[in-house]
Design a protein around this nucleic acid. Structure first.
Lengths: 243, 243
DNA sequence: TCAAAAGTGTTTGTTATACACCCATGT
DNA sequence: ACATGGGTGTATAACAAACACTTTTGA
C-alpha cells in the first residue's frame, strides 16, 4: 500500500492528483533509453486504475518541496528501473498552456541512458505496466509525450555524434562491434568496420580490458571500457568528440 | 506607472513579489548575449528599490497562467531590449531547493543572441539599470545567476561549433573578418584568415550580398548574409555544421 | 573445414594547416 | 608610398573512405 501511494505520488500522469508535499504546476518526465537486441528502446508505462487502462506514457512524477529538481528525476528513474548512478541529463522543459487537460503544469523532461541488462523492469499488479518499446513502434502516448519523445530522439541523435555518451547504453565492458552496432542503431545507417575501429581507437577514449568475449561461436573479440578519465583530460585540453 | 507595474511583474528577482495571475514556483530568466567592439557581452539589470540598489541580475520574470513558457521568455526579452524575432532558445531549468532565499522557485533559463546595434538598452529612472557587461568582467550576481551564466557560456561555446548560430550576433550583412572575429571572441582563440574563409565559404551557408563595406580606411570587404534556406536544405540532407 | 566475426593493410582522394603572396583603398 | 586589411595560391601532412585481405575460433 505504501508502495502504491508512492507510485501515485510519483506519477504526474495518472491524472490530476493533488500533489501534497509537492510543488504544484511543475512535474518531471523521464525519457529512459535502452538498447536491446541491437535496437534502441524507450521505457513506457501505463496505469491501470479501477480496472481501466490508461494510455502509455513516459514515467513521470511531482517534485517534493524539499527535493532538488534533479533528485526528483533520479527518484523517478530509480522507482521504475531500480538503477542508480546512470547517465541522466536534463532534456528540456515543456510548458505550453494547454499541454494537460487539467490545470497548468510545466514538465521538466530528463533523459537517461541505461544498459537494459542491468535493468529489470519493475511491474506487477500494484505497479503500472511497463515495457521497453522499440523506437520505431511507439504508440500514441498520453498528453504531449510523443512530442517530448520526438524531441528527445532528435536530441540523442545529435548528441551521440558530438559527445561520448553512447557507452552508457552498453554494459561496462563491450566489443568494438557492439559499439558500432549501437551507432548504427541510433544513427540509422551502416558503417565501415575497419574505419570505425580506427576512428574510435585513435581518440584514445577506450581502454582495453585485456579480456576476451566468452561464449561466442567465432573468434572472441577484445573487450574495451570507456575511459572517462582520459576523456576529462582531453576535454580540458580542448579536445572535442566528433563522430 | 503602468510600465513600472509591468516591470515588477516581469521581474522574478526584485524579491518575493506575489505573482498575481502568474504561475507560482516557476520563473523565467534570460541570458541575452550581444557582441560589441568584438567582445562578447551579456545583458544585466539592476533594480533600484526605495533608493537601494539591488545586485546585478539576469533579466527575468514570472509566467502568466495563460502564456506559453516560450512566450514568457519572449515577452521578457522584448521588455528589456525592444527587439523581437531574434534567436531565442531554452537553455536549462535550474531547480535547486534553496536557490532563492524566499520560497521554492525553479527557473527556466533561456538564452538569446542579438546584434547589439539593433538593441538600444531600455533603462531610465522608472526602469532598472541595464548594461552590456563584458563576459570577462561579470560581477557577483543575485541568487544563482552566476551559475546560470557559466552554464550558458559553456553551452554557447559548444553550440557555436556545432550549429550555425553565430550569425545572430552580427548585423544582417557582415564581412568574413567580422565573422572570424566573432568566433575568435567566443572561442577565445586565434584563427587563420585564409583557412577560415575557405571553410566558411565551402559550407555554402553564406550568400554574397554583392555589396561592399563602406567607410573603412582600407579595401572594402564583400558583405555576406547567412542563408537560412540553404541551411535547412542541407540539414534535411544530413549535413551537420562543424566548426 | 566452414561460417562468422576479429582484426590488419593499402590505396586513393579529400581536407586541414601553415604560410607566402598579391590586391585595393584611404590617408 | 605606405599601412591596413581583403583576398588568393600552394606545398605538405593528416585524414577519411573503400575494400581486399589474413586470423581465430566454435560448431
Amino acid at each position: 500500500m505504501a508502495e502504491l501511494d508512492n507510485l501515485k505520488k510519483a506519477s504526474a500522469h495518472a491524472g490530476p492528483l493533488p500533489p501534497k508535499g509537492s510543488i504544484p504546476n511543475i512535474s518531471v518526465d523521464n525519457l529512459i533509453f535502452g538498447l536491446e537486441n541491437g535496437s534502441l528502446k524507450v521505457l513506457l508505462i501505463r496505469h491501470n486504475i479501477d480496472g481501466k487502462r490508461k494510455p502509455w506514457a513516459l514515467p513521470g512524477g511531482w517534485i517534493h518541496f524539499d527535493e532538488d529538481l534533479r533528485d526528483a528525476a533520479k527518484r523517478i528513474l530509480h522507482l521504475h528501473t531500480g538503477v542508480e548512478g546512470v547517465y541522466l541529463e536534463q532534456l528540456k522543459t515543456f510548458g505550453k498552456v494547454d499541454r494537460l487537460p487539467f490545470g497548468r503544469v510545466a514538465t521538466v523532461a530528463y533523459y537517461a541512458l541505461v544498459s537494459t541488462e542491468k535493468c529489470p523492469l519493475i511491474a506487477n499488479d500494484d505497479r503500472p505496466d511497463a515495457m521497453w518499446c522499440d523506437i520505431h513502434d511507439v504508440p500514441n502516448l498520453a498528453y504531449d509525450h510523443n512530442e517530448i519523445l520526438d524531441f528527445g530522439l532528435k536530441f540523442l541523435r545529435h548528441k551521440i555524434r558530438h559527445e561520448p555518451i553512447g557507452f552508457n547504453l552498453l554494459p561496462e565492458k563491450f566489443t568494438l562491434l557492439e559499439l558500432q552496432d549501437l551507432y548504427e542503431a541510433i544513427l540509422d545507417c551502416t558503417l565501415d568496420k575497419p574505419n570505425f575501429r580506427r576512428k574510435m581507437l585513435k581518440m584514445k577514449l577506450l581502454e582495453s580490458c585485456n579480456e576476451k568475449q566468452t561464449g561466442v561461436a567465432h573468434r572472441a573479440a577484445n573487450l574495451y571500457r570507456f575511459d572517462a578519465e582520459a576523456f576529462e583530460k582531453l576535454s580540458s585540453q580542448g579536445f572535442s568528440f566528433e563522430f
